[in-house]
Amino acid sequence: MDFILQGILQALELLVRGDRETYSAIVTTVKVSSCSMAASLLLGLPLGYLLGYFTFPGKNGLRLTVDTLLALPTVFIGLVVYAFLSNQGPLGNFGMLFTITGIAIGQTILALPIVIALTATAVESLDHSLRLTLISLGASQKQIFLTSLWEARLGLLVAAIAATGRVLTEVGISMMVGGNIKWHTRTITTAIALETNKGQFATGIALGLILLAMAFSVNLSLSFLRRKA
């Protein structure tokens, strides 16, 4: 049990001492997850709104597909993205394999169904008289879209929290698409996997605690936003 206590102490030491390798992993994690969250929110919010707001043929089938994609294994996404980005793949010319961009693409695919499904649920649960009220006050289609999203803001925050949690903690995509390259594509989760393989449990636990602290900070900020909303 000593190694757990040792891990906690080491986490503090790594942060206080300003360990360059640890900070590199933290920065890479923040960069990758920020990019993937920005992309998934930009794409997922309008798509989730369309899915939740409108009725169209095939809507139930589409909803079922999105819900199924919530359970996508990260290693499977990693495999597919690897296949597309490798030299033999259709996007091989872009040279995105083993880059932060490559990991961000994979994580966007991971987060997108979460954002779409939870946004659609939040929009579906809006009061049906909202649309009538907005039109009667003279709102345009764009104003209806923006106001409806704002009315569903608590549900959208939940979507963002859930997707951020999944993106921050995934290891399969970062490992397969990023290659766990030191100073370059090594994220906290891939660093934990590496340290554990090397038998450096204390360092692994230290990095895990740092990841947990990051997740806590993100949730704390979102919870503050939720209270303000």
């Binding site: 009061d127 008289s129 909202l130 009538l132 009220t133 039109i135 009667s136 003279g138 106001t147 009315e151």
Partner: peptide, 15 residues
Amino acid sequence: RHRVTLLPQEPYLLK
């Protein structure tokens, strides 16, 4: 539509 407006039976107030 900016000159005509409706008060529905169960009006919705924005949050």
